[in-house]
Design a protein around this nucleic acid. Structure first.
Length: 259
DNA sequence: ATGGTAGCCTTGCTA
């Protein structure tokens, strides 16, 4: 089973790229972030024409996450537990083909002296608590998304310039490590230990052409999924297209049970 | 020190 995560930075602006990529790559599951639209405006017809079902958690103008899958999407959980007052569309989880998958759009958190940074850290505390619950099930689980965390300086083109950013500063990285250390495996990193491979490049200053990026999109696997990890990669092709998202897809391949 | 770009949707916010 091939599972990909992609922050599309508006699904309506990116439906052309997305539909083309689905038809070419044909992943089994796609975890989308930054839909930037309500569910009623999601381009369902194009997605269905490409062969996918969709579980959508939308929001006007900001955020928005979805799970696309060729198979049936079962038992959805449409918000991260732990704060009923939180109305931001940043989390959706469901079961596809016996694998529990989640699409995560973790708060950016900049500027770091604002309530937005406090919200980021609180959101990560909620994610930590929920991951503990998920792992107790001892099922194969793939938690993918835009984590807005560059885990180490190896994941940043200019660590010195980014050291005080919400994506890099020590409390952000510590909160991320605390989640990973519950027993998750970074699917890309474990198979590609070489530094400076990125999933996101800012639109400004020709950053993609100069490969000035960060690795902030991750697929985190439970032990039962990591045992079946066959391959992982970053597909840079969509980022090179005209009118691209600032993120590009990250994918992993999970072996079928018994294979 | 600042502004660079994109999307949404407004005269700014978020990233």
């Amino acid at each position: 089973m091939r599972i990909a995560t992609w922050n599309v930075n508006s699904v309506k602006a990116r439906i052309g790229h997305l539909a083309m990529w689905l038809k070419k790559v044909q992943p089994d599951v796609v975890l989308l972030q930054e839909l930037k639209c309500v569910a009623d405006e999601f381009p369902r017809l194009e997605i269905e024409a490409a062969g996918y079902r969709a579980e959508i958690v939308g929001q006007k103008a900001y955020n928005g996450v979805a799970i696309l899958a060729r198979e049936k999407i079962e038992d959805p959980l449409r918000a991260l537990p732990g704060d009923k007052a939180d109305e931001q569309a940043r989390y959706v989880e469901a079961t596809v083909g016996g694998v529990r998958v989640a699409s995560i759009y973790l708060p950016n958190g900049n500027p770091v002296d604002s309530d937005k940074y406090k919200y980021k850290l609180a959101w990560m505390e909620r994610l930590h608590a929920h991951v503990q619950t998920l792992l107790a099930s001892e099922r194969p689980i793939v938690l993918g998304g835009d984590y807005n965390i560059a885990p180490t300086d190896d994941d940043v083109y200019d660590p010195e310039g980014w050291k005080d950013d919400a994506l890099c500063r020590p409390p952000s990285r510590a909160a991320f490590r605390k989640i990973v250390h519950l027993g998750l495996t970074d699917a890309f990193r474990v198979l590609h230990p070489q530094p400076h491979q990125y999933s996101y490049w800012d639109y400004v200053q020709n950053r993609f052409a100069r490969d000035c990026g960060l690795r902030i999109d991750h697929l985190l696997l439970s032990p039962q999924a990591a045992d079946r990890l066959a391959a992982a990669g970053i597909d840079r092709e969509p980022r090179a297209l005209d009118k691209a998202s600032d993120h590009t897809p990250v994918w992993c391949e999970i072996r079928n049970r018994g294979a």
